[in-house]
Design a protein around this nucleic acid. Sequence first.
DNA 1: AAAAGTCACAACCGCCAGAGC
DNA 2: CGCTCTGGCGGTTGTGACTTT
Length: 322
Amino acid sequence: MGRAPCCDKAKVKRGPWSPEEDTTLKTYFAKYGTGGNWIALPHKAGLKRCGKSCRLRWLNYLRPDIKHGGFTEEEDNTILTLYSNIGSRLVVHSTSSFFIILIGRATLPLKNLLLLVFTEWSVIASHLKGRTDNDVKNYWNTKLKKKMQLMENMASTITNTSCHFSPTPTLQSAPTADSIYFGTSGFSTMNYQHNSVAQTMVSDPNQFPLARLMEVQEQVTTSGYSSFSATSSSQEFLSTLSPQISLENGYASWSGSGGGEEEGFIVGLGSDPSADIVMDGFGIHEKIIGAGGDMTTINYSSLAGNVSHINSSLGFYQSVAN
DNA sequence: AAAAGTCACAACCGCCAGAGC
DNA sequence: CGCTCTGGCGGTTGTGACTTT
């Protein structure tokens, strides 16, 4: 037999809060606080709500220091960084749970096992002024989880990998001081090595929208070379990754410069809401919806100050005015 | 214009930890 | 020591708004 519920669900109001209820709760709270007991609060305040519901409404919405509205890129990065750190604990907990089951020959309900795998949203939220754990959790589940998965998939795919595109990308747009564009009539195959084993990936146009353009973020130019470095503090969360990018001899390649988990390929994550970030066999792309139709770009950014280069004699690149 | 699909987020649910008795 | 109760937490659901077909 389970626990008795904290309140009689038949006698309390549920669902969205009305402005009047919000006012009642705020007024009561301003005068008396919780009175040390959330369960008794609704009765004292004259609200037909469960005490837990009142508590959640106050903590997640009515508190004066709550910050409403969209998350900034800086907040995105904080969450991603903290999730990465805290996420390592998931392995420990899930693994130990697994061994508890094996060694003890005990049968734990699946839900109990899953409960051992916790994320500590409140810890992450405590680093973001005015954000609640519920905010962070919702935001993670709807947006950032996808972003993180793309990053992990890409890092996993290209670790110890170099890729050769065919046909060769060619310059598609006039270079500017900030960016240059490369493109092809459509990448049809990608030859690459994974852990020293040669691989060929053939794209299926029905499954993978073919890359048309690659955008290379650029900060410093010298004769014949482009240097890549961090372009935005908002991308600092990626700084533990150390990719190198090069475009030379008719192909594009990239590789991690570190070891283990820190290897990876960096993509620029734009804040433009009209841009969806997608991954295909060739990398992560930002699908920009333009007035003239869809245009797919790849945004390569090296963030750790690693210098890569483009061979200007191959037609990929022309001298760029500073 | 309408239906279907997707997204964002408020709210709920069930469980656990710890305090108090 | 064991029980009850409350606060707190993460997972999940419900629903309205928005977008796409």
